[in-house]
Design a protein around this nucleic acid. Structure first.
Lengths: 216, 216
DNA sequence: TATATTTTGTACCAATTGGTAAATAAATAA
DNA sequence: TTATTTATTTACCAATTGGTACAAAATATA
């Protein structure tokens, strides 16, 4: 039996389980801590978040943060990645709706849900994470600008597909439409951060969709 | 003649001219310096602006700044006042257009002009001055939120007037319309800060106006 | 001229910023 | 048990933050 067990162990080690790590085990869950960091960055922005506040909220000391996530900038980037794969994962889902109009409706509605979710900060982290900042933070600022442009580009591609599929008129300017939707999204984020509630944001979505182009 | 001159002087002193100030004269023009400060706050935000950068850009030393404008927070407030009475003075003008639709069209178009003006930073200072921030800056953050809400309230009032004057249908929800326009405005500000150019922003205005309610 | 008044420049302050060295603690491997 | 490895704690670092004391300079008044 010992042999069998040993065999199992060695197989697990080299193939599946990373086995037990050598030294002292981590006393915190990386994902949980990263979620807490995300919440702070989300509500205060990159520059508005200090390492001192992070240590308090995360409940771990600075050397542990630096050992686990690198410096403040890489911690922000990892929190941002968690944001896009978590609270903002609905974007990918919305893109798969059958028509361009449904894509937009689903996207904006789910964005409102996220903006007004009481379990997370108001607004969109990618909008308010570093809209303006000092010179030292311009890398993060540019990163967030790139995120916004990527979303816009994704909309453009989806709308071109819709044009080919016929659910968007041939005369439609897909880049303009993408920028229009991005603008509504970003404007609603500012509104949410300033206190607008779910119902008010949904009314904006409805209003914004009235100008959506149709074939007739 | 001495008596006459003295009389003139004393009259001037107490009524019109502040006469020549007693001590060493200021070596800078307050309004020019305030404009420079405004530009820094506008592009970097409240927290992203350091007193060190201000001294460099304004060309005067810190004690002179503090003597003339108070601390960083009051300096920001004075720069903000100059912003509203300067670059953003077009709002009052737009409000006087004959119909609600023309008010909105004029407002958004002039906002685009301001956002993309090459002589000033991109975007709207009231949106990006402190969208998020650390706890120490929350007073400024709230101040800017109030500014945005005031604009929205002004639109609401103007639209109610339009309803009474008949150029806006009775079924129109003025508060919703005001929030919609504010959202477009704020979204375009984010776009401008992220690199959108004048033509792109004007296309957004056109698109946004398509959903404006009409009487027929 | 002397005096009062104001601004300027230098040099400084305490507090906070992001970040780290070093000793100790907790686990595995031999 | 002993050695090795990793994580935590404490205490610290240089640089920067917003803000100021103080003396010298520049003006008006007397």
């Amino acid at each position: 039996m010992n042999d069998v067990v040993k065999n199992e162990k060695s197989v697990k080690k080299s193939v599946k389980t990373p086995a037990k790590p050598r030294g002292r085990p981590l006393e915190f869950n990386q994902d949980e801590v990263l979620d807490k960091a995300l919440n702070v960055f989300w509500s205060r922005g990159y520059e508005g978040t200090s390492m001192a506040e992070l240590t308090q909220v995360l409940g771990i000391n600075k050397p542990s943060i630096y050992a686990a996530f690198g410096n403040k900038e890489t911690l922000f980037r990892k929190a941002l990645a968690r944001y896009t794969s978590g609270s903002v994962a609905f974007v990918g889902e919305a893109m798969q709706a059958p028509t361009a109009r449904q894509v937009v409706e689903k996207f904006l509605t789910l964005a409102v849900d996220s903006f007004s979710d009481k379990n997370t900060p108001d607004g969109c982290m990618i909008v308010q994470g570093a809209l303006t900042c000092g010179q030292n933070s311009s890398a993060i600022q540019q990163e967030l600008i790139a995120c916004r442009k990527n979303l816009e580009a994704a909309f453009n591609e989806r709308f071109e597909l819709a044009k080919n599929q016929g659910d968007l008129p041939q005369w439609a300017n897909t880049k303009q439409l993408a920028k229009y939707i991005a603008t509504i999204h970003q404007g609603m984020s500012v509104q949410a951060t300033s206190g607008a509630i779910r119902e008010e944001l949904l009314a904006i979505v409805e209003m914004a969709l009235k100008s959506w182009p149709t074939n007739d």
